[in-house]
Design a protein around this nucleic acid. Structure first.
Lengths: 205, 205
DNA sequence: TTATATACTGTAAAAATATACAGTATAAAT
DNA sequence: ATTTATACTGTATATTTTTACAGTATATAA
């Protein structure tokens, strides 16, 4: 495959980003706007070059008739890359780039319910539920949880993975290990934030 | 999610097929041609209905500005669908269609090593390794296994998932549950076929 | 010095496209 | 008997979009 010039590479990336974001390809004018060109012909020329080099194909006469033949990066591959977040002691498990340990190629719909990220398990508090240290628990971001759900809860600056049980203002976070004790929270005295619930688990052997 | 009428369903399928084939969405006129309508307004009305019901979104004023919000089938998935095979008592876990319980959308490279299928775990013999009944163990087809690997072995017509340990002609298949005992095989007297080894595990909560 | 390739601006026209409006037809519901 | 929902045809137009053409500028190679 022929090498791309710096500008051609930018244009290809622009098309891929647009496609990812909207689900359909950009027009010449939209590429121009994104990359700061002032003439649609600038985009046109780069697209023609990309077509000649085999990276895209252009359906002549069709609006937005661009399709990616060969993605320049592993970018927008086949499947999604789901982020893995460490169970950090301080703060909530956010999807900010600096908290992402790595990404795993898999489909967000691989479990019965969709999920948003993997949480890497620390400690042995859920071992009797077959959840080991370094297992990756698939978390769906939601506050809609029921008693008995395996949930991610933030208490102060501590994030924990436990079974959920709530009666009025009394919240119990129940471990699955007899050496650990249930965390009891009186919601009138302390706040607790439900970050999400587990919909599945994966482990690498 | 609201139900679709027969025609709306056809139009949505048409959009998905077109998108799969070309990489960009169809115009109203193209939908008409595909489905035999004679007025672009026919397509327009169906698209509006699909938008109202939440199946697609339409970027107003943009040509081909259709994006799929909720695919009607699991159709047009990009990623692979990995087969799940039950740990059948008789015969080896083959990939023949009749043995496949279902398929899970995920990437064969999601674990450190690639795998070929999921094996659905029966029984509690590996529970101390955190492997529960109905967990899906990702199996890589190989005979290249080392002592300590978690392997799928076939003895006669029995298939089992155990830890592997071999010294000369003495093979031990070790469970992870003190209520089960190690299976010892003298390879001079009985054959044992290594079907593959586990590279990971997934569980749906 | 003269090409040659890259990288654009600026304009304009033809073609593609979305989309509104005015109808028609049919089956089911009220 | 009349409304309501679905499912279209047919036409027209404003807008979007592609795409050709005529230039400009700069760096590199011959």
């Amino acid at each position: 495959m022929k090498e791309l010039t710096k500008q051609q590479s930018k244009v290809l990336a622009c098309v891929e980003v647009y496609l990812n974001k909207t689900g359909f390809p950009p027009t010449r004018a939209e590429i121009c706007k994104e990359l700061g060109f002032k003439s649609p012909n600038a985009a046109e020329m780069h697209l023609r070059a990309l077509e000649k080099k085999g990276y895209i194909s252009i359906q002549s006469g069709s609006s937005r008739g661009i399709s990616i033949v060969k993605s320049q990066q592993s970018f927008e591959k086949n499947g999604a890359q789901m982020p893995v977040i460490g169970l950090v002691a301080a703060g909530s498990p956010t999807l900010a780039e600096e908290n992402i340990e790595k990404r795993i190629p898999c489909d967000p719909s691989m479990f019965s319910d969709s999920f948003d990220y993997f949480l890497k398990v620390k400690g042995l508090s859920m071992i009797d539920a077959g959840i080991h240290e370094d297992d990756l628990v698939a978390i769906k971001k939601t506050t809609d949880v029921k008693n008995g759900d395996l949930v991610v809860v933030r208490l102060e600056d501590e994030v924990t993975l436990k079974y959920f049980k709530k009666n009025n203002h009394n919240l119990e976070l129940i471990p699955a290990n007899k050496d650990f004790s249930t965390i009891e929270v009186d919601l009138r005295e302390q706040e607790a934030f439900v970050e999400g619930k587990s919909v599945g688990l994966i482990r690498t052997h």
